[in-house]
Design a protein around this nucleic acid. Structure first.
Length: 555
RNA sequence: UGGGGCGUCGCCAAGCGGUAAGGCACAGGGUUUUGAUCCCUGCAUACCCAGGUUCGAAUCCUGGCGCCCCAGCCA
């Protein structure tokens, strides 16, 4: 039944294994923003469980607060779940599909003397609720008759009251130590909002606690998985289902939400980044949204692997960025074809190479996977290499190009630097080198050349824009309560560096949006949607692991 | 004694009374026309603390301590 070798077990699987009652789960996003990496954890859990246990997982929009929701988010959410590799069978569901049934359940609650219409204002309600340590006190409207409540509730629906004039409340226990049980509101009045699904059919909307458990029951969900902050709501979840005549009673199980270091996963704050223009949009490659990660160059497989690696528990899930990076590197190392691209071009002239000559050099698309084939790269007298690969004064361990030194041009010849050409300001503008014609595909005679650098032929190279991304925040926990100030104070000013004068090898002319490549020695890159003929744009997904950077840093 | 939850390596995480899996990170070494990949090796006498039960405890009991969540007519 459960777990293959690569799906580690966890406490929820253990519960399912013990229960042996089939698996129907649901992923219930509210369409008030884009899905983020934390949702990916929930998606992989819910859809993954359904897959592994031969069950079903419903995509259900929790759309009970139309004021904050819209159709654009619905489409984005469907796209992201699909992109991650999951299907929900048929049409997505909406909590709003059940509004009429929910209304009838509310009537049933009133008839059972378990709900009442309360005229207290929001502020008064707060006072009556008590505090964490002091019990609340009963609303003066708590003992209205069933008939009066039935009439009032019908008039709420009919639009006879204004926003906030009254609410329907569950009648539970104002002295309950769990605040959620102190007669929670279950319907509130909202005039004038056009609901994206139901239009103007309703002027009042059910609250989450009432809606969620009943929607689960209506859909015959067996396991209703949610995050830890809903643990306190479970007694309420169970109370509604125990009090009402429902077809089944799903089991709510809570797990800890994902915290990814150096980013945020609060929809409110992500919205703020978009609204205030801190990032370009929800799919900005710096965003931890699924759309952002996709545009950054993450693959569905890498995200699923990430969710598998981080596990599912009830303890704090405070994950280092290195885990995510490891996942995407592992996927792309296997699957991304290699290419050469020069980010900071420095011209090299091979003084002993014929001026009119161009060779077609064959280069492997993957050093370990022959089946990925070869492509040809043009080689000529004038090339570009990266400025970082040449040093006038180099530390002893530097094994790239230095004056008088030799280096291997990846896939091509060994060259020696003979002369440095500088402009009036002393800036290096080009290097004069000579190549050894006897080193194509073979090691040179009598000497060892340790360094290998990448290059592109100047005449054939295609100009490109390359966008380098770094973490969005400078603090591991930018929204931690203990940190002074606003999370916006910890924005990383270097989270995006745009390089507009890069050169990539000719074969990249045909690259398509979302294609993945390894630019050798630089990292993994993907084609940005801004990419078009005449303007190639690549996003750096992640750098290669770089032990040289460590050596240089520590000396 | 407001309620709920959590505490196993720097970060995740197995473990469910029989003597601490694994991943990431980190540190060494080997191969290499990517300082990449790959391959070895190392990395908790110790499981928040203190008592107790037991031949035996991370696992059971008792008492502490620490951290997280809850006072929306948000979800």
């Amino acid at each position: 039944m459960s777990s293959s070798i690569n799906t580690p077990t966890h406490f929820i699987r253990n519960i399912i294994d013990q229960n042996k009652r089939g698996v129907t789960t649901r992923f219930p996003p509210e369409p008030n923003g884009y899905l983020h990496i934390g949702h990916a954890k929930s998606i992989c859990l819910n859809f993954g469980l359904a897959e592994d246990y031969n069950g079903r997982c419903h995509l259900r929009f929790d759309d009970t607060n139309p004021h904050k929701e819209n159709a654009e988010f619905i489409e984005a959410i469907k796209r992201d779940v699909t992109w991650l590799g999951y299907t929900w069978g048929g049409e997505p569901r909406f909590a709003s599909d059940y509004f009429e049934q929910l209304y009838q359940y509310a009537v049933e609650l009133i008839k059972k003397n378990k709900a009442y219409v309360c005229d207290l204002s929001a502020e008064e309600t707060r006072v009556y609720r008590g505090t964490l340590t002091e019990r609340g006190k009963d609303s003066p409207y708590r003992n209205r008759s069933i008939d009066e409540n039935l009439d009032l509730f019908a008039r709420m629906r009919a639009g006879k009251f204004t926003d906030g004039q009254c609410v329907l409340r569950a009648k539970i226990d104002m002295a309950a130590p769990n605040i959620n049980l102190r007669d929670p509101a279950i319907y509130r009045i909202r005039h004038g909002v056009i609901h994206h699904q139901t239009g103007e059919a309703w002027c009042m909307y059910p609250m989450y606690d009432f809606t969620h458990c009943l929607s689960d029951a209506i859909e015959a969900i067996t396991y209703s998985l949610c995050t830890l902050e809903f643990e306190d709501h479970r007694p309420l979840y169970d109370w509604f289902l125990d009090t009402l005549a429902v077809p089944c009673h799903p089991q709510q199980i809570e797990f800890s939400r994902l915290e990814l270091q150096y980013t945020i996963t609060s929809k409110r704050k992500l919205s703020q980044l978009v609204d205030e223009g801190v990032v370009a949009n929800w799919d900005d490659p710096r965003m931890p949204t699924i759309a952002g990660l996709r545009r950054r160059g993450f693959t569905p497989a890498s995200l699923r692997d990430f969710c598998r690696r981080i596990g599912v528990t009830k303890s704090e899930n405070n994950v280092e960025m290195s885990v995510l990076e490891s996942c995407i590197r592992e996927d792309l190392n296997d699957n991304a074809p290699r290419r050469m691209a020069v980010l900071h071009p420095l011209k090299v002239v091979l003084t002993n190479y014929d001026e009119d000559k161009t060779e077609k050099i064959s280069a492997a698309n993957h050093p370990q996977k022959e089946e990925m084939g070869q492509r040809t790269v043009p080689f000529s007298r004038e090339l570009y290499i990266d400025r970082e690969d040449f040093r006038e004064e180099a530390p002893k361990k530097f094994k790239r190009l230095v004056i008088g030194g030799e280096v291997r041009l990846r896939n091509a010849y060994v060259i020696r630097c003979d002369m440095v050409v500088k402009d009036a300001e002393g800036e290096i503008i080009e290097l004069h080198c000579s190549y050894d014609p006897d080193t194509l595909g073979k090691t040179p005679e009598g000497r060892k050349v340790k360094g290998v650098i990448h290059w592109v032929s100047a005449a054939d190279a295609i100009p490109a824009e390359i966008r380098l991304y770094d973490r969005l925040f400078t603090q591991a926990h930018p929204d931690a309560n203990s940190l002074e100030g606003n999370f916006l104070d910890y924005l990383n000013p270097d989270s995006l560096r745009t390089l507009t004068h890069c050169f990539v090898e000719a074969s990249l002319a045909s690259a398509q949006v979302e294609d993945h490549f390894q630019f050798e020695r630089e990292g993994y890159f993907t084609v940005d949607p801004d990419h078009h003929q005449g303007q190639l744009v690549f996003n750096r997904t992640v750098t290669l692991r770089d032990s040289w950077a460590k050596i240089e840093k520590t000396g």
